[in-house]
Design a protein around this nucleic acid. Structure first.
Lengths: 347, 347
DNA sequence: TCTCCCTGTCTAAACGATTAGACAGTCAGC
DNA sequence: GCTGACTGTCTAATCGTTTAGACAGGGAGA
């Protein structure tokens, strides 16, 4: 009855109260690896309940050399695309009874390295890395430490050896779909809004666009992956009267910034400017006008990454990015359903 | 040179190589608590570097009864308001050298309880709980285990005892500001879009609205905290011709849903419908039209929560929610700056 | 009756760090 | 020269689990 406040009950406390050894108590708590007589089991369970016993995962981790914790390093949690990916990864890990240690690298290779170090010191069972650019391969250390590592969204540049995988979407197919759809709307010159450099998946998207549009004098634009940067660029283009008539943005964040600036300047979308974005986050369904996007299969990518991390293999096929037609491309609102077309409540 | 792959170097390995005891190695690694001769320190450091020694935090945690890990339980990571809060909390913890274990309760009291249990088993040094409604007080267990707990955004209903704090924003002031601003635009009947019930901060906001608008026959609307729900409700109101002329939304998510549906139905905002939202997430600056909001001081709330958690007290004053004028309220685009007014790149 | 195997239990050795206690040597003050 | 205070180091206990090894008792099969 009297519960000593400062002290949590331990295995030994339970054993004492149940009149058994710590070994049997452990066998009961873990259902094994040795059998326990039903009557003893009852006594142990009763004692544990009475003492409000909660196994100390730290001690277990030390002994069994596995913590049940996975580290997740995000390029940036501010970007909803990465945020959504993180959510799905956390969920997939939770379903596998893993806890998620999260960290924000803020697009900095240094911070990414720093976080990886701290996570490895914390003895994580695995590392999931969502990086935006081809930063130095963090996984080499993880591999040296025998910690499996999976890259999501962006594969590291260095050749992988040992147990490090990457789950990426098919960027080429997404770009081709976007281009051919804009062509059905009559566009022949289609601009592309890329990131500040060509590292990472957006760089590959840009390359695919370049191939598809070669010889058409379609302009290449660049700005940081933020709404603010895209807005500023758009305002500038409008002022200089250099606005293209069709634009593919490398990320939703940029598309949303473009839309906001166009709206503020009274530039009609899609009338004067048709936009297709390549991420397809939930946000994209609620812009005005609603964005046409190629939706990245974030959930299935997350699922696959976790399978790869924990099993070394994934039973599920890689899902395809799919074109979701809304209004920013020029498709008529009438032929589409409401503003939530293509939006789902996730989780 | 030959690095044994499967095995990480331990304190004992370093001690052996340096010709010292594990105690001195520990003293060197932690700068204390006993002094070490400079020459010995050198030898130890050299050995550690050569073996690529990384202290095992799990072992340290077991012995020193502190893990350096804090658990963060989110009502929903899908909601950008909570997402932003989580980012700031993680950042504040990182600055204090703490790791963040994250979990998503998905608006379920059961899952919240489940996560708290798992985090406590993992021996977290503290718990930060961001819940949306007044669910049962999870902190009682944490307190029993001697783990400090802080609620952010929403205070638990049960009276707090022991070491459990809550950091909340001043909802009344925010609502009053929103109401009086809409009145300057000539509105007298101002609807309020609340959540499905009156639990949590949005419930308090609703109460403040009710007090301020009593006797004006301003309609109370309700829907779930999601864009989809708010969009559906808005479509319905438009179809039934029951749209109010001014609306305060309890959350940005709902406001964005309202805006999307209004845009799709051709209802002009703010012309036919003026909107003010009460969260003020970064998203709100990039809607069309840009949302006028009362901006919650998320960053300072996060900072304060972390101070409270780790120090039991916070030196910083509670920041106030501030009205950010954009266009959805009826303020003219001309008198405001671009679409990014009030938006900052965070972190 | 004598093995052999099973079941159920206990004892004790890990896991890798932290740190109190013991102790040897040095040096200052008397 | 003796005492006491430091300095620098080592030995070993400890944190709370897991689990291999030992062992007792009880059939089953010969």
């Amino acid at each position: 009855m009297t519960k000593r406040a400062g002290k949590a009950a331990t295995l030994a406390d339970v054993a004492r109260k149940a009149g058994a050894s710590t070994a049997v108590v452990s066998y009961v708590m873990n259902n094994g690896p040795r059998p326990v007589a039903p009557e003893t089991r009852e006594r142990v369970l009763a004692a544990a309940a009475e003492l409000n016993y909660r196994p100390n995962r730290v001690a277990r981790a030390l002994r069994s050399r596995t913590t049940g914790v996975v580290g997740l390093i995000l390029a940036s949690a501010s970007n909803p695309y990465f945020g959504a990916l993180a959510r799905h990864i956390e969920q997939a890990l939770d379903e596998r009874e893993k806890l998620t240690l999260i960290g924000n690298a803020d697009y900095s290779a240094n911070r990414q390295q720093h976080l990886a170090d701290r996570f490895l010191a914390a003895q994580v069972d695995g590392l999931v890395i969502v990086s935006a650019d081809g930063a130095a391969d963090v996984a080499v250390e993880a591999r040296a430490a025998g910690v499996p590592t999976v890259y999501v969204h962006n594969a590291p540049e260095s050749p992988r050896t040992g147990r490090a995988f990457a789950v990426t979407a098919d960027n080429d197919a997404a770009v081709l779909e976007a281009v051919s759809h804009l062509r059905t709307h009559g566009h022949t010159r289609i601009a592309f809004l890329a990131g500040p450099d060509d590292a990472g998946p957006v760089g590959r998207r840009r390359a695919a666009w370049e191939t598809a549009l070669s010889g058409t004098a379609s302009p290449l634009l660049r700005c940081a992956y933020s709404r603010a940067a895209a807005s500023a660029l758009t305002r500038q283009l409008i002022n200089e009267d250099a606005m293209p008539s069709a634009l593919i943005t490398g990320s939703d964040e940029q598309a949303i910034g473009v839309l906001a600036a166009a709206h503020a300047a009274g530039v009609p979308v899609p009338g004067r400017l048709a936009v297709v974005s390549l991420d397809g986050t939930p946000d994209s369904a609620y812009t005005a006008p609603a964005l046409t996007v190629t939706e990245q299969p974030l959930r299935s990518m997350a699922q696959q990454a976790v399978d790869l991390l924990l099993d070394g293999t994934s039973p599920r096929p890689a899902a395809q990015a799919g074109l979701v037609l809304r209004h920013s491309c020029g498709c008529s609102p009438a032929q589409q359903s409401g503003p939530v077309a293509g939006a789902r409540d996730r989780r």
